[in-house]
Amino acid sequence: MKSDRAVQGLGLVAVLAIVATYILGLWITPPAAVMGNLVRLLYIHPPVAWVAYLAYGVTSVASILYLWKRTRDPRWDLIAASSAEIGVVFTALTLLTGSIWGRPTWGVWWTWDARLTTTALLFLLYVGYLALRRATPDVTQRSKRSAVAALIAFIDVPIVHQSVVWWKTLHQSATVFNASLSPKVHGEMAWTLLLGFIAFSLAYVWMLIRRYQIAVLISKRQEILLQGALDERMSTV
């Protein structure tokens, strides 16, 4: 299959880009003025957080397309679910890498400032979304309800992003996506960070396609099982 080859290629490119980010981040880029070698988490933590936002964005768009009657299609629901699953993983990674970064720089693993608290809530909101999907056996009910839940959960995403602007936080403000859109990082450090963003975004796209394919297979399998059960019932009657 041609398209499958393309997906495989995409996966390979994503892995290579991540490897390149690691090599650049760990060996080529200089230590920073204040942070020293701790700065190297910069090439991982913001890109991972960005992928979480991106994943939830895709979930929301797919949920809206599902809820809107003119574009309703079960495939949107599967895309939303696949993306949310990746989003939860990347939110967890954001919290983990942030915590690992926070300990040596701030001096604490965790603190209850607005950015950290809203991110933790974001994680829980989408864990709830996934739990709701699991707990609702009927396909149409599941799709509709989880789409509504996804949209409610997404309200938190802009709050997380703006929290460092709206409130005084220990967490620093945005380095790249700030109000003036002028990155506060330069030279090879900036290029490595950009590569990190691209690498993790590619990885996200690859994961989304694969997860979606699995979701399609699962739903097909359920249809076949259902049909089998029906046939069995009919033959005994």
Partner: peptide, 14 residues
């Protein structure tokens, strides 16, 4: 307890 508040600027060391 002291917590260091790092700025959003990243500048290469000398």
């Amino acid at each position: 307890q002291i917590m260091v508040k790092h700025s959003a600027n990243y500048v290469a060391a000398h």
